[in-house]
């Protein structure tokens, strides 16, 4: 072969261009699965006062999948993932196969109530004033979510933003 360096260089350039194109078209990773010692175990108890004053318990939601979402109104990724949670909740509202339960993480109930006035929140939001629930779940920073099965077992821990498609994919994975 004449001029091997030229040919090799051309091939490398093509591969690099393809790689660059792939990288350029990727959206940021969402619904990131993380490891947690809780996976495969019964979820720690969540019970507390919801924003409307009612008492909410995680155990009462047995029978449906639950997305337990830790959030704060000051957290930008939480604000970004909110419409996705709404979408997910609506997709499963009819058959009640999956529900959303939010826990306020290092934020005031007042701020969360204000957030609910301007944003659609059609699920219970639980206060966690002394951070005990977050401690039980080993939450490091919002947003973090746990997918909990109908039997109360923790199936997945998700760090960072979730999206409806990603959550549905996890549900399908469990179904398989």
């Amino acid at each position: 072969m004449k001029r091997p360096a030229l040919w090799i260089a051309a091939t490398v350039l093509l591969v690099a261009a393809a790689l660059t194109a792939v990288l350029a078209t990727r959206s940021p990773a969402v619904t990131k699965i993380a490891d947690s010692p809780l996976i495969g175990r019964i979820a720690p108890d969540v019970s507390g006062k919801a924003l409307d004053g009612a008492t909410v318990r995680l155990a009462d939601l047995r029978g449906s999948f639950v997305v337990l979402n830790f959030f704060a109104t000051w957290c930008i990724p939480c604000q970004r993932e909110h419409p996705e949670l709404v979408r997910f909740s609506q997709q499963h509202a009819a058959d009640g196969s999956a529900r959303v339960l939010q826990v306020i993480f290092d934020d005031t109930a007042a701020a969360a109530r204000d957030f609910g006035k301007t944003n659609q929140v059609d699920w219970p939001v639980v206060e966690d004033p002394d951070g005990q629930v977050a401690l039980d779940f080993g939450v490091r920073g919002p947003p973090e979510s746990f997918l909990i099965g109908p039997d109360g077992l923790v199936l997945f821990k998700i760090v960072g933003q979730v999206d409806a498609a990603g959550l549905n994919r996890l549900l399908n994975e469990v179904a398989r």
Binding site: R3, A5, A9, V12, A17
Partner: peptide, 17 residues
């Protein structure tokens, strides 16, 4: 990254042989 690779590999293709 694209520019670095293009310049580097391009130069090698041009001068390498």
């Amino acid at each position: 990254f694209g520019v670095v690779v293009a310049v580097g590999v391009g130069l090698i293709g041009w001068r390498g042989d």
